[in-house]
Every structure is written in structure tokens, then in C-alpha cells.
Amino acid sequence: MTETGNFNSLGIVIAHTAAVHENAHQVVSLGLEAMKRGKRVGFFLLSDGVYNAIRGSGEVAAGLSQAISGGGKVFLSSEHVVASGIPGEKLIPGTETLEKPYEALVDLIMEEWDRVIMC
């Protein structure tokens, strides 16, 4: 079982756009704050969340770029990127598009991240 205080890594799953709710912006800020404190942070964007990975699209995208620059991971669901029609060259550099997103997400949630928050 998870022990309270055993917190070295944080996973943030984002499934909607920043325009739908300020939540996307808040959780990215939270992730950056966690990185400042030395935590490993991973973002997983699926469903409408992948639109946040368009370079230059706003504060959320800027925050994700900052996270990557600082050593954070930003994963994208391949099937949602394809569905969205976002050209590859418009994606934030350094994002990792995953061909089997559900398998990867389960591995991250169950074995890699100590805490998970959903957005």
C-alpha cells in the first residue's frame, strides 16, 4: 500500500483543453512546483488534453515546455494526436507520443508514479 509521505514522483493526467477549465493551467503549475521541490513529474495527455501540446497555444503549453526543459516528461496518446489532426511539427519539442497509450498509462500509474492527479 502507498505510504503517506513516500512521495518522489507525481503523475498528472490531463484529458481536456485549457479553455474548458482553468484546471489544466492549475495542474501544470502544480507539476512545476513539484519539480522545484525535486520530485519527478510526468504529464500524460489524452483525449482533448492533447490539444494542450500544440506549441505556442498558451500558458499550459508554455508550462509543459518548461517542464520538459527541467527534466519532466510529457507523454501524448498517439490515437488522440492522430484523431486531433495536430501536425507533428506543431507539437511541443520533447513530447513523447506513445503508440500503446493505455498500457503505458497503467504502467506509469501503478509502478512509476507515487501520486496521481486527474484533470
Binding site: T2, T4, L10, R37, C119
Partner: peptide, 15 residues
């Protein structure tokens, strides 16, 4: 910014 402390202090975060 202290929300990260709350996350640390709790085992699960339900949204």
C-alpha cells in the same frame, strides 16, 4: 503553491 504539500500529505487525491 502549497497544494503540493497537501498531495504529499494524502495517499490519494480525488478530483
Amino acid at each position: 503553491a502549497l497544494a503540493i504539500d497537501l498531495i504529499e500529505q494524502h495517499e490519494f487525491c480525488l478530483t
